[in-house]
Design a protein around this nucleic acid. Structure first.
Lengths: 294, 294
DNA sequence: TTCTTCATGTGCGCAATCGCACATCGCCGC
DNA sequence: GCGGCGATGTGCGATTGCGCACATGAAGAA
């Protein structure tokens, strides 16, 4: 049953009873309507209408088509208004993805956003792999550093996350603590396993210490932070997270060049929708209260 | 929401995830698919798909369309098979119309036909006005005499109904009975009110008796027959009906030139369907047992 | 009856739409 | 790393399908 337009034409003819009336409603010439009906009947090899000079009377098959197409037209009308309206309303699914390090920072934002717009279903994804916005995997992504600029993505800076060198109390008791970069010799460090990391503080760390001083490496940021807390060595921890842990001692204070900029990334097609705009406004508003740089 | 074909195209893209795949299924060029999607999105002023090199990923609106169009396609497929199949099966409505005089002759035929094909819903219409087959008002019409030959109608002879002159016993007691045409003088006759009747026996009656001898006229055949039964005068009654009434006395026996041929009339479009053919076969088979001419 | 109106049906010329070709871009495998 | 493959996207020529005009027929009104 290909060619749905012919079904639509036949529907209007069955509904109105005349070819001319259907042509008016459809905005086409009545000859077109006749051709559509002829084509449809030929393909179905069945008569849909009794033709006479006063119009077209639907046969049993035509009345059957009328009933089916009636509901179809209503379904399509509802669909159309839903789609046209959904760009204007803040409802439906909102998929946000971020690096796992800032998940607990974002979660209260997501929750309050959902409370503000009860029609929204929030999906907050944090995974090792980078979700691709151009595949429609997420509406909004929160990313760190100066990542690759993909086309069709609109990027906005969010905040700069302050990072400093910390050590656990247990590490200090065992090895002491350097008071400056010059006293690093003989100390152990925790660093990411990825050689090609773009994080500025890890690049600084690799440049500042001997390779054999890096005695603990991991690929997952959460695992690195846990290693520092447990005394595996001196390592970088985000300042706002370290502040919550009295067991961590600041070895070197945060430096501007270590700061990692958080970026909001959205796909250009979705960026203009009210739903995304509402979330971006909500997110930026919440970020004003974050004390990451103080 | 005009242009249902574009919805169908978008549906296949949403279902398969690629423009090329949808083009294959639809049997069109992939450029056409792209144009349909672009046109539809422009009219809805909303994105239905995220475009990327590996295909089209449906957005929320696209998934909504997918769900709606999925059921639509199923509905249309069912509709198509119903319409294609209904020409081959004996089911659905069967509308038969006839002159009222033979209604009780036809009714047992209709009932046995319905019992033979339980899927059939029989509508048996008898009305003063002639139902028009070309308006789709009936599948089969049983008509009397040599009516006007309408185009697109296929006409088949059914039986010849024998008609004779009868009088009620009460009329005979009061006025006596003529034994031949020559003794008609002084008798009263019952005739149709219609001047332009085509019934051969009524034309014969008007030619054979003086106008003032026709003392009772009616337009409805059943009323004429009732008038004869009640003694209003001598009149024509179908032989098979008079045989059931012992109160009626045959005045003149049936003549071949009085016989009224019953015709089966069907519209050419419906004549070929199995449902109509099955009914015609059933009707002719039943007519063989009728004793109208003996 | 005759005229008017409103419907279907058809030939013809044109335009919107389709198919083809090619360009381009990512991804996968060698 | 790089070449092939399969996807999207675009310009151009061909064709399907459209609108127009007119013929035709039936029903209702004067």
């Amino acid at each position: 049953m290909d060619n749905w337009d012919e079904i639509r034409t036949a529907f209007q003819v069955a509904r109105l009873g005349t070819v001319s009336g259907a042509a008016d409603v459809l905005g086409v010439h009545h000859a077109t309507v006749i051709r559509h009906i002829d084509s449809l009947e030929k393909r179905l090899s069945a008569k849909l209408f009794q033709r006479h000079a006063r119009g077209y009377t639907p046969t049993e098959a035509g009345r059957d088509l009328l009933a089916v197409a009636q509901t179809t037209e209503e379904q399509f009308a509802h669909l159309s208004s839903r789609i046209k309206g959904q760009g204007e309303t803040v409802a439906g699914e909102l998929v946000v993805t971020s690096i796992s390090g800032v998940a607990d920072l974002l979660t209260p934002v997501m929750v309050s956003f959902q409370k503000k717009y009860p029609g929204v279903m929030v999906r907050f994804l944090t995974d090792m792999r980078v979700f691709r916005l151009d595949y429609g995997e997420a509406h909004v992504a929160i990313r760190a550093g100066a990542g690759p600029e993909e086309p069709d993505n609109v990027v906005q800076p969010l905040v700069r996350v302050r990072t400093a060198l910390y050590a656990a109390k247990s590490y200090a008791d065992e090895h002491g603590l350097p008071t400056s970069e010059a006293e690093f010799a003989g100390h152990r460090f925790v660093c990411t396993d990825a050689e090609a990391t773009r994080a500025p503080f890890y690049r600084w760390l690799r440049a500042s210490v001997q390779p054999e001083q890096i005695t603990y490496a991991a690929s997952e940021p959460a695992a690195l932070e846990a290693a520092v807390r447990m005394g595996a060595g001196i390592g970088f921890v985000m300042a706002f997270r370290a502040a919550e842990d009295p067991d961590l001692i600041e070895v070197l204070p945060a430096r501007p060049e270590w700061e990692s900029p958080l970026r909001i990334v959205t796909h250009v097609d979705l960026h203009r929708t009210r739903k995304v705009q509402a979330f971006l406004a909500h997110l930026k508003d919440a970020a004003k209260d974050w004390k990451l740089c103080s």
